[in-house]
Simulated scan of single mutants.
Amino acid sequence: MLYIIDWITCCCYMMLRKIHYTKTGAETSAVANTCVITGLWLIIITDLILWITYPSILQRIYSKSNVYSLSMITIAIGLIYFRYYYLRKDAILLMEKHFNEKGPRNVWILFFINFFVLIGSIVGCIIMGLYIKSQGIIFGGW
């Protein structure tokens, strides 16, 4: 799973570097992009697990959906920032070196990878919400 997260971060970082972002700006933007994608994945996975195991808890959570979504995104931001800025400060630079050897170099390919992963995460979250709603979980109320 960390390899996928690193790959997404590196694709975004390389795309931003190709369009002449500064190194720091590209790194910060790539990490923020990864935080959003990871937060959406956390929402989808948590919804699925709770819907299978404890639908009543999922109903209680969705009665305060803004707090739930915000907390999942906050957890993702904390974990990703902790990984890239405290545990592995050189991770993005090492990924860039590895990516230059084996990965796509065209800025449009990198753009479409980032675009489809981000849009796919958003669509996945929407589909999961619609599925949960069709199963009787009511958003914003008991």
Rank of each mutant, 00 (worst) to 15 (best):
M1K: 10
Y3C: 03
I4N: 07
I5H: 05
D6V: 00
W7P: 00
W7V: 03
I8E: 07
I8R: 00
Y13N: 04
M15V: 02
M15W: 10
R17Y: 03
R17Q: 11
G25T: 03
E27R: 13
A30Q: 01
V36T: 09
I37H: 06
T38P: 01
W41G: 14
L42H: 04
T46S: 09
D47M: 12
I49P: 04
W51I: 11
I52N: 08
I52V: 08
T53Y: 13
P55W: 04
S56D: 15
S65M: 13
N66M: 15
Y68S: 05
Y68I: 03
T74R: 05
A76H: 09
A76M: 07
I77W: 12
L79Y: 13
Y86S: 12
L87V: 14
L87I: 13
E96C: 04
F99L: 06
N100G: 13
E101T: 13
P104Y: 05
R105Y: 03
R105S: 13
W108L: 11
L110S: 02
F111G: 00
F112C: 12
I113D: 01
I113Q: 02
F116A: 06
L118N: 12
L118M: 12
G120A: 03
V123T: 08
I127G: 05
G129Y: 07
L130W: 10
Y131A: 12
I132T: 01
K133N: 09
S134C: 02
Q135R: 02
Q135D: 00
G136A: 00
I137L: 06
F139S: 11
G140H: 04
W142C: 05
